[in-house]
Design a protein around this nucleic acid. Sequence first.
DNA 1: AATTAGGGACCATGTTGCTT
DNA 2: AAGCAACATGGTCCCTAATT
Length: 239
Amino acid sequence: VFVKAARMATNEISAGKSAEKWKVFRDASEAREELGLQSNSLAVLDALLSFYPENELRQDAQLIVFPSNAQLMLRSHGMAGATLRRHLALLVEAGLIIRKDSANGKRYARKNRDGEIESAFGFDLSPILARSEELAMIAQKVVAARSAFRKAKENLTIVRRDVRKLISAAIDEGADGDWSTIEGMYIDIVARIPRSPTMADVTNILDELELLQSEVLNQLHIQKDSAFNSINDAQMSDP
DNA sequence: AATTAGGGACCATGTTGCTT
DNA sequence: AAGCAACATGGTCCCTAATT
């Protein structure tokens, strides 16, 4: 089954295709969560790639590495054997590598007289080449989402501080209105911000805060309007 | 028969994040 | 601040298959 899958994976790679392995590794690292991997899985993937002698992964090459678990443990920063095996299984599950088992399950390469590898048993890296564009796209998406998230959080902070200032100023200046109720609403909204919010959390809270913000501004405008007795109506209304 | 490498399953321990 | 649940880790046992 695995051999068949491996053949299928290599067959899907268009002729002459190649990719720089560490570039794909960085993309896969960005796509870590989407792939269902943990940070240590990446350490193992790093180790696996380090056993491939070339920098370029080529479609016409044998993309099989065959390090022993002991070697992999060393190059995975001393990771324990049981943990290493789990992460290898995760990488297989994520579809980044394919097991190519020998009859006895051990990893090795059989070489001919010229020293060329005739057949190798270990891990097939060809899915990494096959999916290089896909991984790059996921990485791009993740980076974009991260910066959008950062911007949303910045927005939230700005609006939050603004509303807080407006309410405090209104109370200090003794403006008309039920400011203690409004302050209570503000405190309630802010208290519902989770410790590590998701994008949805941030946008929801931001919506509520902006609603509250416009209510506060509305209150203050009404008051100013009456105070200035509609002389400045043209300037007070929104552009 | 003994040895060796690999892998799955189980268990105890340690971390971390979340709730109260 | 403390306790709880989920999760990751690492050690061990057991099995397989080839090699000697």
